[in-house]
């Protein structure tokens, strides 16, 4: 079965996007392999170094997805994206605009402006956002290639605490919805996929687990299972029990 997913002009088989910020560099390669990931995100500011550059630890066949972490407004996001494209040639850019150093919650307003600026410069913008339908629509209209709502504040491993709002985005937005940030367990990644998310991104859940390779694999399997369940269409849930010998079965 060919079940690929598209972001802009790019096609991928793996629906697991790996974050990179919290890994020990030597462990990244095996995490990628066990996750069977094709895309790995990284902050441009993280690759702005001469010693132990994370890029040297990524297998060549893996797509690098630079993010604009460190940007506090749309203009800074654009400047970072331009540097990233110059350095790595990447046109897929994950937009992160954050004005809060404590919770690291994205600024939807500035992010929307950044989507427009990047789209106008020929990028494939992938905005990280707080799951708000109006903002997601604006980002879609501004030229976003996908929408990346957070499941919970980044790094918290709290799972899909914004589940109902992500479901609304899945129903209403005609772009891939990629759940980004907050996912703490494979079961939560499976849940997001069952709901109809196109892909899931994770980092902290794996990087802070007891065994990085095994957890990467657990996430891969969960994402695949969730995707299959979505494609198979889940059985309906009912509010009432359905007795096999109904009370009202005598009615003619």
């Amino acid at each position: 079965m060919k079940d690929k997913f598209k972001i802009g002009k790019y096609e991928f088989k793996s629906r697991f996007i790996l974050g990179s910020g919290k890994f020990n560099l030597e462990l990244i390669k095996s995490a990628i392999e066990n996750a069977n990931a094709e895309i790995i995100t990284m902050a441009l500011r993280r690759i702005n170094t001469e010693t132990d550059n994370i890029l040297n630890f990524i297998p060549k066949n893996i797509k690098i997805l630079p993010n604009t972490s460190g940007a506090r407004n749309a203009d800074e996001a654009l400047r970072i994206a331009l540097i990233a494209r110059e350095l790595s040639g990447a046109d897929m850019i994950k937009i992160e605009v954050i004005k809060d150093s404590k919770y690291l919650l994205p600024d939807n307003y500035e992010t929307t402006k950044a989507v427009e600026k990047l789209a106008n410069k020929g990028f494939v913008p992938m905005p990280y956002m707080y799951p708000d339908l109006t903002a997601a629509r604006d980002m879609q209209n501004a030229g976003a290639a996908c929408i990346m709502p957070l499941g919970a504040p980044i790094g918290t491993n709290k799972g899909l605490i914004t589940k109902d709002f992500i479901q609304i985005l899945i129903e209403e937005i005609d772009l891939p919805i990629i759940v980004d940030a907050g996912i703490g367990k494979p079961s939560e990644a499976a849940c997001a996929m069952e709901m109809g998310a196109e892909a899931v991104m994770a980092n902290t859940a794996i990087a802070t687990s007891g065994n990085i390779q095994t957890m990467a694999k657990a996430f891969k399997l969960a994402i695949e299972a969730g995707r299959l369940a979505y494609l198979a269409k889940l059985g309906k849930t009912n509010d009432f029990a359905q007795a096999s010998s109904p009370l009202t079965g005598f009615l003619r």
């Binding site: 020990n24 902050a43 500011r45 702005n48 170094t49 460190g70 940007a71 970072i80």
Partner: peptide
């Protein structure tokens, strides 16, 4: 001891 030295994680904007 399993830590990851980072020489820079900053970009001037």
């Amino acid at each position: 001891i399993g830590m990851q030295p980072v020489m820079n994680e900053y970009v001037w904007v």
